[in-house]
């Protein structure tokens, strides 16, 4: 599903964010991306979204080298990849329902699809009752659920999460992780960058550790730190 082949990413000013990284992630896997701040986790996810392009090497998604995708094909790629962020990126002038519906409307999905899909996904994330609330009227955990609903409403093959629980307390975090786990069980590949030792240790999923842009560990049922 996802394949990195000797990928190096250098930003302007000689910052090497990823160094000769090779890695394969299979369909339906759940992968934690860990490593100290600045180790290249977000860069890894940005390459997958084609937000950045690899300086060297290839990034393949579903067999396609996405570094060579024409800019008009990038939207198609992104329709197959949902993503959530630490800061949710919700639109404050739209309700929960509208935020989720927006993701379908702007890719031209017909009204009847929107009308059936949005309530379904709100039910999945447990926010049916809050459909008409605005993001500012929600707790952080609820906001992250909305953002997950928006990322998943189009049923993407891959879900990327960049520190989705970074702003949440431990109890809320557990709820979000359960949700991501459920989404993963539907066959969606999930890649999540995180600093949260507890959840990595608790979930016992594949752990990929980066340090200064290099792959230093790839463990099938790993924990956050080797020694811990």
């Amino acid at each position: 599903m996802i394949r990195f082949e000797d990928v190096t990413k250098a930003y302007k000013g000689d910052v090497v964010a990823l160094r000769e990284l090779s890695l394969e992630i299979l369909k339906g896997e759940f992968v934690f991306l860990v490593g100290p701040s600045g180790s290249g986790k977000s860069t890894f996810l940005k390459l997958l979204l084609r937000d950045e392009v690899a300086t060297e090497g290839k990034v393949l998604v579903a067999g396609r080298d996405i570094g060579r995708l024409g800019s008009w094909k990038v939207p198609q790629l992104r329709r197959n990849i949902g993503c959530v962020f630490q800061d949710f990126k919700l639109l404050t002038n739209k309700t929960v329902y509208e935020n989720v519906a927006f993701a379908l409307e702007v890719i031209g999905r017909p009204k009847h699809i929107v009308r059936t899909q949005v309530p379904q996904i709100l039910d999945l994330v447990g926010l049916t009752k809050k459909a008409d609330n605005f993001p500012t009227e929600l707790s952080g955990g609820e906001q992250q659920r909305v953002s997950i609903a928006r990322a998943f409403v189009n049923r993407p093959l891959i879900l990327l999460a960049d520190e989705p629980t970074g702003n949440l307390d431990p109890a809320t975090t557990v709820g979000i992780m359960r949700l991501l786990d459920r989404i993963n069980r539907t066959g969606t590949t999930v890649v999540m960058a995180t600093h949260d030792q507890r959840i990595v240790d608790a979930m016992r999923r594949r752990v990929v550790e980066l340090d200064h842009g290099s792959l230093v560990r790839d463990q099938v049922r790993g924990v956050y730190g080797v020694g811990s």
């Binding site: 939207p75 992104r78 329709r79 197959n80 639109l91 927006f102 993701a103 890719i107 928006r150 189009n154």
Partner: peptide, 8 residues
Amino acid sequence: VMKLVGAS
């Protein structure tokens, strides 16, 4: 957000 979710 539009670009993120793949609006053309």
